[in-house]
Design a protein around this nucleic acid. Structure first.
Lengths: 220, 220
DNA sequence: TTACAGGTGTAACGAATGTTACGCCTGCCC
DNA sequence: GGGCAGGCGTAACATTCGTTACACCTGTAA
């Protein structure tokens, strides 16, 4: 039994290998290995097992019929691939999954996962927490995107973390620009203009809100 | 036992009330009613129960410390409120929830939900499917947004549904513009320009891809 | 027929953003 | 000190987008 695989189960993660043997968190699974460049899954493949990446790194790509690559994302172990899709109505991989290096995958059938969810409360909580946190992350991201202009995104971001009129970015301007899917100079300019217009005060990561009303007008 | 409440359990949804009484999908719950304008939950409240909206309509609002409303969304029964947050690490309401009319809520404790998930396989599948579908929807939305320009969004959207070089929008240009969070004339112009430049052919909802390479250059 | 609503194409202008290039600081290493 | 990399501000110009306004078409109801 590979303890690395028990990604979802806090009890299993926090106990020693010896202790785990006494816990009933045992999951039927098979292990597969892939070499660099191999396809682990292809877009459209049915997801009938949980694909737990337990070693190595993979990239995901969306390929249209025409063969154009649309987008790429890297995922490192340990991480479950397409864990949400296992239970979705359209349970197919939305992307191609390709090994970037020697990889180890743990495959667990949907039935085994359901069994484990029913039998091990900690596994259930771990699994639910993982998906729930993903929903939370995606929702938050989407709310930012639904603000059209950079200043609106910025205003939204600030208002979410203000405390008595003061706020901290909590990250560099460069990374915030990336978070907004814009460019650093554009964000920098937006902040400068908000400061010039007396809406905020800002210096080295910290700031204050000076004009709530104008802040409000920036939002969608 | 209110059958409307068994949103997540297909067995319960598909059987008659008489049959359901024989099924073991019984969930401990309490019912609450709210009048128009009442707060059902406030931002920051701990989510320790599932809030199943079983009657009426609510709106959700994000309010910053300063009191500015950030965004609004309407939800109609039957629908679970913040179902993902129940299991998230930061299990707090991200928004205020306000009754838009006479509302009925079914509250089920996290413990009861966990018990039900463990005991009733159909409930487990239904609950997981709901959250999984939400992840899928949000992911898809986010991929569109991560394409910067309107043409890039359009190219992405087309490539996702092309078949042998042909595609159908599947919806009106106006609604697609809304989906992209842009304006109708802007999208209309983008499509016109793509056609003018010989990248696609398009008329009344259907089209063909003429230049794959230029299509590729539009993507992020 | 007329009137009207809904969906669409298009033009024109101003506003917002992308892009590139440059300079300033700070901290770190040699 | 000198050199260098990273994070940042800023300017200037090109591109894209938002906005408004208008015209056209279709189907439908009066």
């Amino acid at each position: 039994m590979n303890t690395d695989l028990l990604f979802f189960c806090k009890i299993c993660r926090e106990k020693s290998r010896g202790e785990i043997d006494e816990v009933k968190c045992t999951i039927e699974h098979t292990v597969k290995r892939y070499r660099k460049g191999e396809y682990i899954a292809s877009q459209g493949d049915k997801v009938s097992s949980l694909y737990m990446l337990t070693g190595g790194k993979v990239k995901t790509e969306i390929i249209a019929d025409s063969g154009l690559t649309l987008s790429v994302e890297e995922i490192a172990a340990p991480y479950p691939l397409a864990s949400a899709f296992l239970f979705a109505d359209n349970n197919r991989f939305p992307v191609d999954v390709i090994a970037l290096e020697e990889c180890e995958l743990m495959l667990v059938s949907k039935e085994s996962i359901e069994k484990q969810l029913a039998e091990c409360p900690e596994f259930l909580r771990g699994f639910m927490a993982f998906i729930a946190n993903r929903v939370r992350f995606l929702s938050e991201r989407l709310k930012i995107f639904s603000q059209r202009s950079i200043k609106a995104k910025m205003a939204y971001y600030i208002l979410q973390r203000e405390k008595n009129g003061a706020f901290e970015l909590g990250r560099s301007i460069a990374s915030l620009a990336e978070y907004f899917v814009t460019d650093r100079p554009s964000l920098s300019r937006a902040i400068s203009e908000m400061a010039r217009d007396g809406i905020i005060e800002f210096e080295s990561g910290k700031g204050k809100i000076l004009a709530y009303n104008e802040m409000k007008e920036l939002l969608g």
